[in-house]
Design a protein around this nucleic acid. Structure first.
Lengths: 223, 223
DNA sequence: TTGAAATTGTAAAATAGTTAACAAGGAGAG
DNA sequence: CTCTCCTTGTTAACTATTTTACAATTTCAA
């Protein structure tokens, strides 16, 4: 078992492993080798073994990995058994969609409250979660332990709301705004979901493929 | 200027550069050095210069980079000036939120149509885009050139809809479902927006921090 | 019970990515 | 116009990540 700091790349692969293991579980697969897991995920078997070995010895020689056991171990590494509490800031389209569709509890999170400025929806309950006034945010955070804030407010509100969150002890933000929250000095953990970054990457790969095809066609035409 | 394949890491940083340059533009900043850009993004100046140098020489010695020129060059590298056409599959919460809130045109995309199975919303127009029946998908794709499909259907529909998209010539998918679409054999470009992966990574980092604190507290108590 | 086949965990090698260092050239003050 | 300072692009050194290779161990068929 490797010790010391685990690399970011490894961490980012863990949720993918978890997702695949869930799928295998559902399909009734009880054991899997690093070779087959690699095939299904497009990774090399050694990378998978190397990744797992950062955290312990989860497999068995000559057998492979027991799917549901491994699933549990990865889930635990990711902290899904710690019962983290979250609050949602901003019940606009995205916030609302998260409340309706995203199953926080599936990943061990409890969405305890939501906060909005629009009086039309303050006081309503969405998917079992009460929407409170943004004015109550500070006092709520003072009185309740919250591990993660889900930031889904409009662009303009992102910085002021973040400041208030930090002032009331929030140390982790799941950021759905397009704003770069990561401040040089700050120790707050920020995880960004930047839709536009994702689409732009795809745009690059599409362009690259188109360019390659055009170049190929041009070469063919010249001969 | 470097030649050959550009690394994935570089591509993933380009949208962040673009975002920062847009912000600088709005603030009226006209020039910036790699040093200052690095400060603001938490990257080293050499990495920034190295990244840009993959695509050409955009700076000027003794001066730095001209913000709006550089912005345009990166936007062009990412393909935002190619007028890609997109269609949306699934007008549920996420799909609807994308139509209302995500500004496709800001990134050079044109959202040409949306497709749904729910008869209650088929025929309606959302943010200027007509919602069509999913039954029309195949014929629409045969008659209209589409570069990217935005997949926001329920989990169960992800695979069949993807198969139909591919059967009608779609080669790039922006995937909002929690399903792993990347098939070993397929050449379709898939860009995933897996909310749960993102939250789980954050969960890991929160857990890591908590563990470090607990260990620190235990060490302090022992003395 | 035995032995071939399978599969892990890890050390070492190979590859990839990041940072440091610096020559070259332009900006800007006087 | 000249001189100093600034900042780039790029090469080389360094660091990190991935892959290869293999001893150790277990499974499973006969």
């Amino acid at each position: 078992m490797k010790s010391g700091k685990i690399s970011n790349n490894v961490i980012r692969r863990l949720p993918r492993y978890l997702r695949k293991l869930d799928e295998l579980n559902e399909r009734g697969v009880t054991r899997i080798s690093s070779f087959e897991l690699g095939q299904q995920l497009g990774l090399t078997p050694s990378q998978i073994r190397q990744d797992f070995s950062c955290f312990g010895e989860f497999g068995q020689q000559g057998y492979g990995y027991h799917v549901s056991t491994l699933r549990g171990q990865i889930a635990s590494i990711l902290g899904t058994d710690r019962g983290y509490r979250a609050v949602l800031l901003g019940v606009g389209n995205i916030g609302h969609a998260l409340m309706d569709n995203f199953c926080f509890s599936e990943w061990g999170f409890h969405l305890a409250a939501a906060f909005e400025v629009n009086p039309a929806i303050i006081g309503s309950t969405i998917s079992g979660v009460l929407v409170r006034s943004m004015d109550e945010l500070g006092s709520y955070l003072d009185e309740n332990h919250v591990d993660v804030a889900v930031l889904a407010v409009p662009k303009e509100a992102a910085i002021p709301v973040t400041k208030e969150l930090e002032a009331h002890g929030i140390e982790a933000i799941w950021n759905f705004t397009n704003v770069e929250l990561t401040e040089p000095g700050s120790s707050t953990l920020v995880e960004n979901v930047h839709f536009s970054d994702s689409l732009l990457s795809l745009s690059y790969f599409v362009s690259e493929r188109n360019d390659e095809r055009a170049a190929h066609a041009a070469r063919a035409a010249r001969q």
